[in-house]
């Protein structure tokens, strides 16, 4: 009975959280389209999320391309299909692995930092102070962060994909004597708009999810320093899960529309 009731309360708190997040999202869209727009803060956040994550994303992407190519080579060689390497790598990176891995990295980097920042601002009454000084903290803190995450993630993913392909091309160049021209010719021969566009659209949603969950967890964090840690931690966990759910939905929809 006790276990059942604990499950029940767990379930109801889960739904409560989802409901609150829904409300939070609704508020985001309402405030997004009402004046004034905090453009300076938006740019600042874009810089924080975009440029400050660039190195991380590039290194991750590069290694991803490198490792992926090295790992796939023996299998493809077994089938005598090494010449399909650029097509295979480019399609899997552009379609799936690039967006998902980079979004996960950004969930760790951006999501947790938003969660921790807003969480500590909540805890130290900075959000209240902002509200009291006549500034809408939701607009200033939440809207700008969600929007800049939404805008910057696609760019990070594009850069990350590109760097991953360069990494892969380097391996092919060293191991398989494939020139860069041939590599990228094959890459572009293999890619279709149906690979590139849904994958890019998907990243906007990924960015939105990262910003939304980070802000939600931070903005509603509980008092105390433990609350801040919990906010940033659960922001990352929840975002990672949400990213896979979104990815599934995106692939599902793409599949319906293009097949």
């Amino acid at each position: 009975m006790k276990i059942l009731s604990s499950y029940q309360s767990g379930l109801s708190s889960f739904f409560l959280e989802i409901g609150e997040m829904g409300k939070f999202t609704g508020r985001y869209f309402r405030e997004l389209f009402s004046r004034p727009f905090e453009f300076r803060e938006f740019l600042k956040q874009c810089y924080q999320m975009g440029n400050k994550s660039l190195l991380l994303v590039s290194v991750t992407g590069f290694i991803l391309g490198l490792v992926f190519t090295l790992q796939s080579r023996p299998t493809l060689m077994e089938f005598g299909a090494v010449s399909w390497m650029p097509s295979m790598i480019s399609i899997s990176i552009v379609r799936e692995i690039g967006p998902v891995i980079i979004a996960l990295i950004c969930a760790g980097r951006i999501g947790s930092s938003i969660g921790a920042e807003l969480g500590s601002m909540r805890v130290t009454e900075q959000i209240d102070a902002m509200e009291v000084s006549g500034t809408n903290p939701f607009k200033f803190l939440v809207v700008t962060r969600i929007l800049s995450a939404t805008c910057m993630l696609p760019i990070l993913v594009i850069v990350g994909d590109f760097v991953a392909l360069i990494g892969s091309a380097i391996i092919e160049n060293i191991k398989g004597d494939v020139s860069f021209t041939l590599y990228f010719n094959q890459v572009f021969a293999a890619l279709e708009f149906t690979d590139l566009l849904p994958a890019t659209v998907k990243t906007f949603f990924f960015g939105f999810a990262i910003g939304l969950v980070g802000c939600f967890k931070g903005y509603n964090s509980k008092k105390g320093t433990a609350g801040v840690g919990k906010a940033s931690n659960s922001a990352v966990v929840f975002t990672s899960m949400l990213l896979f759910v979104l990815d599934f939905i995106a692939v599902f929809i793409t599949d319906i529309f293009y097949n």
Binding site: M121, T124, E125, Q126, D128, A129, M130, E131, V132, S133, G134
Partner: peptide, 14 residues
């Protein structure tokens, strides 16, 4: 609110 100044317990500087 601009007519009310508020000094928070923990300073609450950004």
């Amino acid at each position: 609110r601009t007519d009310i100044g508020f000094l928070f317990q923990g300073s609450a500087l950004y």
